[in-house]
Amino acid sequence: MSDPMGNIMEVEHVDAAYGPYRALFDVSFTIPAGGVVALIGSNGAGKSTVARTITGLVQATAGTIRFDGVDVTQKPAWQIARLGVASVVEGRGVFSQLTVEENLTLTFRQRGTRKELSRNLEKAYESFPALGERRTQMAGTLSGGQQRLLSLAKVLVIPPKLLVADELSLGLAPVVIDMVYQGLEKIRAAGTALLIVEQQVDRVLKISDKAVVLDRGSVTFEGPTNEAGNVIESLLARRERAGSTAAKLVDEAVNDGVDPEHVVSKLVDEATKGLDA
């Protein structure tokens, strides 16, 4: 059941790290039940880390993540998935050494019963005929777009409570992106809440109810989608300024014949100041 405020997921003051390297700092936001949240930010902002942390692939080092009223902060990914969180990961998110049908079977046997398997497979092939034609083909030999459709077919047939979709449009042709977004609309229509991690801001904001903007591992904005565009533009402008500062510092240092190690140290210092300004 969703919490009384109508949120399917609540992320509170979450930190996360890859070994000794911290990637998220005090991240907080909510995902309304049945709603669509766009998680946006530039390269290196920590978007994928957020997606991985709430699906259990990366363990939070601080804070709390609640899904459907259950504290899932320290739960492994498979337990979170069984609670109703599905994920479409960035890039190739299918088992390349299994056939299309085996990929679907693997998912449907976990989310549905054995008796329903044939029916679920047929549903998937009806929704995405291209997959039906390639059911015995190794998933690794499908095109990028077809692999994305296969990932979506897994969640479309048995809709989860929450779908976390990471960089769905990455590297796809516009016509395939259209198909992918149509798939997302169908999943949303089935009552599934969506967290869409995207760099294509315009596209994702159109189907979202709210936006969360990340910058260098922290949430800088959470609110209506119509305000998110301005925040992103302001971030980009700051980044550009920081980049110019960095380039200037390198030039100065090289001209002064300074030790390269000091150049890096100074660059890190100054670039960080530039961004904080």
Partner: peptide, 13 residues
Amino acid sequence: VESRRLVQLDGVN
């Protein structure tokens, strides 16, 4: 064998 993490996202231990 291909990806323990990916299979976990399907709810497999």
